[in-house]
Design a protein around this nucleic acid. Sequence first.
RNA 1: GCACCUGUGGCGGAACUGGCAGACGCACUAGAUUUAGGAUCUAGCGGGAAACCGUGCAGGUUCAAAUCCUGUCAGGUGCACCA
Length: 798
Amino acid sequence: MIHDFKNIEPKWQKAWEDAHLFEASDADGRPKFYGLVEFPYPSGHGMHVGHIKAYSGLEVVSRKRRMQGYNVLFPIGFDAFGLPTENSAIKFGVHPRQLTDENIKKFTGQLKRVGFSFDWSRVIDTTDESYYRWTQWIFLKMFEKGLAFRDKTLVNYCPKCRVVLSNEDSQGGKCDLCGSEVVQKSKDVWYLRITEYADKLLEGLDSVDYLPMIRQQQENWIGRSTGAFIDFPLRGISETLRVYTTRCDTLFGVTFMVMAPEHPLLDRYADRISNMKDVLAYREQCAKKTEFERTQLVKDKTGIRISGLTAVHPFTGKDIPIFISDYVMMGYGTGAIMAVPAHDSRDYAFAKEFGAEIIPVIEGGDISKEAYSGDGKMIHSEFLNGITDKKTAIARMLEELQKKGIGEAAVQYKMKDWAFNRQRYWGEPIPIVHCPNCGMVGVPYEELPLRLPPTDRFEPGEGGESPLAKMESFVNCVCPKCGGQAKRETDTMPQWAGSSWYYLRYIDPRNDECIADPEKLKYWLPVDWYNGGMEHVTRHMIYSRFWHRFLYDLGVVPTKEPYAKRTAQGLVLGANGVKMSKSLGNVVDPNDVVDSYGADVLRTYVLFMGDYEQAAPWSDSSVKGCKRFIERFAALTDMIGPEDGDLTGLLHRTIKKVSDDIENMKFNTAIAAMMAFLNEVYAKGSIDRESLMVLTRLLSPFAPHITEEVWHTLGGSGFCSTAPWPVYDESKAKVRTVEIAVQICGKLRGRVTIGADDGEEEAMVAVMADEGLRAALEGKQILKKIYVPGRLMNLVVR
RNA sequence: GCACCUGUGGCGGAACUGGCAGACGCACUAGAUUUAGGAUCUAGCGGGAAACCGUGCAGGUUCAAAUCCUGUCAGGUGCACCA
């Protein structure tokens, strides 16, 4: 009898640690497996059970891999730079370094209590100078290659956080950190030229195994579209107006042009524009609108007509009026469009508002009601008339545009360059020096890390400048190039920086010569399986794939892609079915669950509660089901009986089910299969030692402590955690008899038991031997017999 | 608006390639045990007296549909005036 569940868990955790059981080896004859989970941000609140679910998936896979004889790297670390820590630092007057250390300690304690098989010898912390040294190194390489650059532009700015945000961080016009409205502000900004990698990031998706949903979100984010640039002549001006369109085939349907309010052409010809005053007023009005307003008021089109500027249709020579409107964005395409109201709903709405002409060029639809975007025969389009296929029409038009030298095929992306600087203290300092003579100069590599200077003033300045800007001793420096007086860049990097390459550092975490030893990188890359949350699929995943591909082009890493496979777990919701949050008071602390039920129960429950990839609400009472399961399992040591083969078939089917389900992340059904096996053992009243040792190993990845104890009790050699994974034997898994369903005309009419290998004839004999079924068939003519072996017999009768 | 995902008992969820809907667990009911509560064990547990009816709804294909097709409704996620 196993007592004392409370002490079993720490006991085995210590034994594993003393044996260095889960430490990966860097040179090894075994096949390698690199499993990666998203490292946590160590907030002051500690972990909640959602973290536990997020890590438990690959924890089970990693433990199974070890038992299957793999050399497993399953690391953990902390993504510790970032605003929440800095904000608490300001609030409580404590240095973020101290808070970070405390939080990491708390998280580590929670993780260790759950018994995760992380390789604790490789823990990393992105705020450690031996780590961020290399984050800065990568930035300098990008700077050297022209991929990190500075530009003065309109940026997303959060007035509350006093910080510049990337497009990714300000989706929906809301600050990702505090939720307040983001405003547009002109600022000097560091950018990373991620757009240069757009095609590579897109192509790379073909070589990896991501969940389809994840792949699609990445594709949407990159947003590649193919179309054409077309240059429209302007009446009386030699300059042309360039537009981007994906539907150059509708060129003959153009009845007006629309430019973004900020379009520079307007300023260049301000003296020709008689209503320039109105233009400027409209522009100002648009700038005041938040992103939110611009996107919410989709249907109400506003704008004004430009008097004094007129475009000319390149084929018909007709005059085309030009408007400005904020439904055209300066940041996409050329900032100007050719409007084809007959076939574009936005242009249609605008035309209705402003009384512009609507000329259909594709047959079909009813343009008196709405724009028609379907296919059809081309009309009113000179050389395109009669073409019914969109592709052909586009190709034909492109050919004509090229011949006349007024247009060309073009590709555009929704993805924008990555705004990379933040005006904050708790981030990696950007290692750049501004020299009056030499311009921007990178800090020499041998001077890295460029350390965060000590201070107790972390607040950003009123004008949104970095706290570092106030620190004379940090700011003033000599130019590494000319030796003259110079000033340091005072902005820091965004939180996404450190997490963009952390999986590389786990491979060689203490190296101070380079990011990681090239031989080790070659051995461990790519990450075989990466699991994390859906919320990181478009930002973190895109950023880190970009950095990885850059490092590949640099020759630092040996693979084009960092992650061979990516999956995502569903959220753990609160008991009330909504997202867990402090403010709603529905957060479950894993420590509380471990206190009352133990780590094995917690681990089993987070995987049993539902489909791993789906969100599921926490249920205190359901946890008890897993508690009973674990206790009933432990009690099997008192039920050892003779080997009689009764359990063999089911045992082998369970081996197969559990093995396959783990690979497919169907942990809930894997556990259900073991519960079913356990029920069978209880019904029988005993289990033989060998079978119990098999079940113990199957359960080990889920409930490693109690299985270790049972293994030990049964006299198993070594640790159960590294014992060989049970092998499925098909010949032993066979069932002897099966019960098949008997249908008459598709309706279930009875069941008969036949031999597992019996064919249709034997099945038919069994059907006729059944009294009820024979009666039902009395006097009927059997027209058709459908026999599905092992499943059913369907008789169609008259 | 567009794209994707999800709709199955009181609840979380199972169901291979179209082949016995409701595995496994929770809750619940009855019984046993217990001074009591709790815990544990045994049995039952979609609806209906039954014929039958049941996988959001309405059609369709098929010997057979939770599963495939068409339409529709609801919830979720992502993107969003992207030309």
